[in-house]
Each structure stands twice: as C-alpha cells, then as structure tokens.
Simulated assay, not measured.
Amino acid sequence: MATSIKPVVLCGGSGTRLWPLSTPSHPKQFLNLLGDATMLEVTLGRVLKSPFSNLTFGRPMVIGSERHGELITGLAGKADILLEPTGKNSAAPVAAAALAAEADELVLILPADHDIADVDAFHKAIAAGAEAAADGSVVTFGIIAASPATGYGYIEASDKSGHVIDVVRFVEKPDLETAKSYVASGNFFWNAGIFLFRAGDMLEAFRAHAPDILEAVSAAMPSGENGAAPTFDAAAFDACRSESIDYAIIEHHNALKVVPVDMGWSDIGDFLALWERSPKDENGNVLIGDVRAIDCRNCYIRASDTSISVAGRVGTVIVAAGGETLVCDMETVQSVKALARK
C-alpha cells in the first residue's frame, strides 16, 4: 500500500545573502537562479510524483507572505495557498500546516529555496521516514556533511548509520573546530529544515511546547477563500510570537528521528553556493547576461539590467540588478547580508 504525503512548501524567506538579485519584494524563491524555472516551481516539481510505488504525494500547500501573493499565485500551479500578513518565522506556518491537514495525514515541510540534485535519493529518504512518522515520530532529514561547514545547524544522531536513527540533539551553527569534530565523528548531519510528521502528532507537540503559538494560529486561520488566496486574520496572527520550528518544538520534543541522506543538497545560501551549483565556462566562471570577461577565473558575474565588462579578476562576485551593483570576493560573501541591510 502506498504512503501518501501532503507536501507543504514554506516560502516566506527574504534571501538577503543573494542581494541585489534577491530583494524583499522579490526574494530568491521567486527567481530563476539555476535554470529556466524559479526555486519555488522546482521545489513543487519534486513532489508531483515519485518513482517509488510505495510513495505518493497529495495536493501541495504553499505558505508565504501576503506581499508576495501575486507571485505565489502565478507560480504555485494547483497548490493550495495560505498567506501571512506578517512574517512569523517557521513555527507558525508549520502549526498552520498541521491544522489544515487531517489528524492522521503525513505532512512534509519543505523550504522553497533549496536545491536537490538527486531527487530519487530524496524520495527514497521520504519513504524511509514515512513509517516512523506514521508511528508517531517527528522525522527530520540529515544531510551527510561534505565539509565542516559553520553556516548550518547540525543534528546529532545516536548512531553513524541506519535508515532511520534516533536524534540525540540539535546543535546551532558551530565554530570551525567544533564543526570539524562533528564531521569526524560521523554521527552529526547538517540540518536542512525538512520535516515529516503526522499532523495530529505535531499539534500535540505544539500543545506541549508552544501552546500560545498554536492558539494564535488557530484563531487566525482563514474561514473562507472569498475569491482570493486565503490569508490569516491579521489581528489574530499579529498576536502570534515569531519563532522558528526548531526553537519552538524540535529542540524540546522527545520522539525525534533522523533519516541520513546524500542527495546533493544545497540551501543556495550565498553567492559561493550559487557559483558552486551553476554551469561554468572553461575558466570556472559563471557568466550570465550581457557580460564580457577577460583573464578572469572562478568568478560569478551576472548582469540583469545592464552590461558588465571585467578583466583580471579571480574568485570575485559581480552582480548588477535592480539598479544596484555588488562587488565582493568569494571569501567575503557572508558580508552581503550586511550590505543588503545598508
């Protein structure tokens, strides 16, 4: 008998580390960063069907910002849509996803702006975690760490191997030496923010660990469509505190499992990650738009609304979009978020 999964895509992120490509009015999940389709469209495409006979996907839901309602409506296809009048981090939309599903329905939470190269491995991991989720566990998916990255949170598992492993703890972004020890141990995995659970079990977790969030979201749930994409009641939703699902629920919950998976995952969190995933020329350059480059190596150069001419650069990011121009070294791409705030 096939297991049916309800995919819920969260697309409320701002993507400021990819400024000026990604802006508050048009963040990265609505951009064609790695091809002809937007990140949101690609994410939804991964959960249309599965190559495995024991796994099927139901009608997806997309939860995002009301200010992006027109973008979401235009890109989400036949998905159900739920819009937030203000951003409240990830706990509130996860609570809404559980409330919108049947109690015994399996719900898969997905960020809208991640890249997954091996979709079959992704589906295989979902199928492996579905049984544990049906038995009452909240299942997360641990990315097998390719390097001691300090930009990700980590999941410590009780063992180094297995299809579905008990979670010991979640760890915030570590320093480099700590990250090296995690990777060397073999039982720490990157936290990709992908969760699978039975809706009723997640509601019980909210009642135990964050009842105020569940109460506020329940009061804010829309009662009718009124001919447009349903939106949370603004006054009721405003009373909900802003909190991540990790802090609100996951770090306090006991029945947690992790499925280790090597699926070519990236959160496309900055220009270095975007350069790594993009097709390159013979000199390692990613050149997009009206760009002329001479004697350049390992650069990401993208012109969206002008032309760019560059000579003699190595490991440099140059992006022109929306009347803004960014220039930085690959080693300093983490500074882009601060530049975006300025």
Rank of each mutant, 00 (worst) to 15 (best):
I213L: 06
A236Q: 03
V286I: 07
A192E: 11
A219I: 01
D262C: 12
A210T: 02
H252L: 01
R292M: 14
E282F: 11
V310Q: 09
R277S: 14
N226L: 12
S223A: 13
D238L: 01
G312R: 09
S278T: 13
R297V: 13
I213D: 05
G186V: 08
K180D: 02
V286D: 06
A236T: 00
G227V: 01
D281M: 03
E225K: 14
S304L: 14
S278D: 09
E215A: 15
R207S: 06
E204F: 12
A216W: 00
D290M: 12
I301D: 06
A228V: 14
S307G: 12
A219K: 01
E225R: 14
A199F: 04
H253I: 02
E276V: 09
G269H: 15
G312I: 08
N191G: 03
N187K: 09
A229H: 00
E276P: 02
A235V: 01
V310C: 08
D246Q: 11
K257R: 11
S307C: 10
C299D: 07
D233C: 03
S278R: 01
K257L: 09
Y247S: 15
I308A: 12
P211L: 02
I250N: 04
P260Y: 07
S244L: 04
N191A: 10
A192K: 06
R302H: 15
V183Y: 02
V310L: 14
P222C: 05
N285Q: 09
Y300H: 06
R313I: 09
D281P: 09
R297H: 12
R198F: 02
V291A: 07
E276A: 15
L256N: 00
L256M: 10
R277H: 13
F189K: 02
S185A: 15
G269M: 06
A273F: 12
I294G: 10
N285L: 05
S266I: 05
A255I: 10
Y247R: 14
R241Y: 08
S309C: 14
R302S: 14
E243Q: 09
G227T: 06
K257E: 05
A192C: 14
V258E: 04
C240Y: 01
P230S: 02
S242L: 00
A199M: 06
V286P: 00
I249K: 06
V261G: 05
I288L: 15
V183I: 04
H253L: 03
A228C: 03
V258N: 01
I308F: 10
H253D: 10
F197G: 00
A248N: 05
S307Q: 11
E215S: 09
A228F: 10
S223G: 15
V259G: 06
A236N: 04
A303I: 08
D267G: 15
E282W: 11
A273W: 10
F189N: 02
S307M: 11
S223H: 09
L274I: 07
F189Y: 13
I213A: 02
A199T: 02
A219R: 00
A255N: 15
M202N: 00
P230I: 00
G269V: 05
V286S: 05
P260R: 07
D305F: 12
V217K: 01
N191I: 04
G289E: 06
T306A: 14
A219Q: 03
A303H: 12
D262R: 12
E215Q: 13
I213P: 01
S309P: 12
A303L: 08
A248P: 11
H209R: 01
F271L: 03
I294R: 14
D290Q: 14
N191P: 00
D305G: 12
